[in-house]
Design a protein around this nucleic acid. Structure first.
Lengths: 242, 242
DNA sequence: ACCTGAACACCGTTCAAGT
DNA sequence: ACCTGAACACCGTTCAAGT
């Protein structure tokens, strides 16, 4: 109601309509509701009941809006935002819980949490995964749980670095596939079988045979079990190379 | 020279200027040379010296152009395009060479070839990796070398399916990272160190410590060795879970 | 300082008209 | 059948002007 009147010029103190945060929040809502293509500067301004040009006082251009959104997603993904241990009891509990699980289980938990964070905004996943801003503070903080688990595995710093990169790459690739299909309509099995059967005979004999042996039921695919399988493989590989 | 005259209407027999293939070839050149944003229907028409609307007689819309480009990349990626063994000697040679290498080495070679195919058009990588057309004939044929190697490892059909998916997901995630940075300006090490050091103290203690122990020289990163490391890990994981 | 209006240089695509 | 011209409904962004 406060913003109902259409005035122009600088707003009075206490009734600022715009801020970087408000703009990004509105942008995230548009993307979540209607997809990345629905996000235009003009549309964004309209939902904020503001002139399109006003946005440029808070963000330099559209790609800064997209980068800001990617940052938001990673910020949500970062676990507890504790800069120091203000509650020793909680800290102790956490440490105990962490120590109880094997490093493999800790690593898998970190991976599941990371994947879930990326799934929270499927329409944004591609943008998030592609954005070069991937080297930014919020993103880097996101890697801590992976490093913690791998540290407990007794790996060298170099090995920790490489193992974390490998696992994160797998999660990115998996999430890309997961985000690229609108989950409602997609079924991997029939599509894959149809495509394989449509291949010129002899072009991919092993693929054809294996998919045939699997059969339609054997191929029943869900993303959750596919993720767990890949996670088990990567974890086993890290363990094997210690 | 044949096309120098500006006529309108239907071209005479034998001087067709446009075809789906010609359009896609021109589009690929634009994307390779100037990036994905430079590809517009109007620009594409201009380089073909044709009215923008003419394109719509060969491709339904712009996203069909992008999907067609993704298809081109995968087609280049598919190995020998042999529908039957017309040359028994060649076939035998190939089989012998394949049998000589371990399944691990075959799998790694398949992975390297796949990565190299994705690197051939870096400006298109994101589009290729994201496009849902990823479930299409050319893409499926691309998976044959992975299936062949995994079949020799003695895995069950289900295990082959899952292992191939895991490895391909890793390659996709890796390639995404590789494509997201313009290789000329990017250096991971200084950026990562700077970001980690900028973190509020205590926010990511393990990460901070490990990166510190690695040091600037230890972090000297190149994509080739990062890829080999991940490849070794995933392959070891597949072997360990047999 | 912050917001606005008008304008510029683009887009993708439809539709009716040419040959 | 294939290509064109004009038009529609959009874009992101600059720039000068308001308060």
């Amino acid at each position: 109601m406060v913003n109902a009147g259409k005035r122009s010029g600088r707003p009075r103190a206490g009734e600022e309509r715009l801020s970087r945060e408000a703009i990004l929040t509105a942008a995230l809502r548009i993307v979540d509701d209607e997809g990345i293509d629905a996000l235009t500067m003009r549309r964004l301004a309209a939902t904020l009941q503001v002139n399109p040009m006003s946005l440029y006082h808070h963000l330099p251009n559209k790609s800064a809006v997209l980068a800001g959104l990617a940052e938001l997603v990673f910020a949500d993904l970062t676990p507890v935002n504790r800069t120091d241990a203000t509650n020793p009891a909680d800290s102790a509990d956490q440490a105990t819980a962490a120590a109880a699980a094997s490093w493999q289980d800790q690593l898998k938990e970190a991976a599941r949490a990371y994947r879930n964070g990326l799934r929270a905004h499927p329409n944004l996943a591609l943008q998030v995964l592609a954005d070069t801003s991937a080297v930014s503070g919020v993103v880097v903080a996101t890697m801590e749980p992976f490093y913690r688990a791998l540290d407990q595995a007794g790996l060298s710093p170099r090995e920790i670095f490489e193992a974390a990169n490998t696992l994160i790459d797998f999660i990115h690739g998996f999430s890309l596939g997961e985000a690229s299909v609108r989950a409602d309509t997609f079924e991997l099995a029939p599509d894959l079988i149809a495509q394989v059967n449509a291949l010129p005979p002899g072009k991919a004999p092993t693929l054809t045979r294996i998919v045939g042996e699997l059969g339609e039921t054997g191929l029943a695919y869900d993303f959750d079990s596919g993720f767990e399988s890949g996670l088990a493989t990567v974890t086993a590989g890290i363990a094997a190379r210690r």
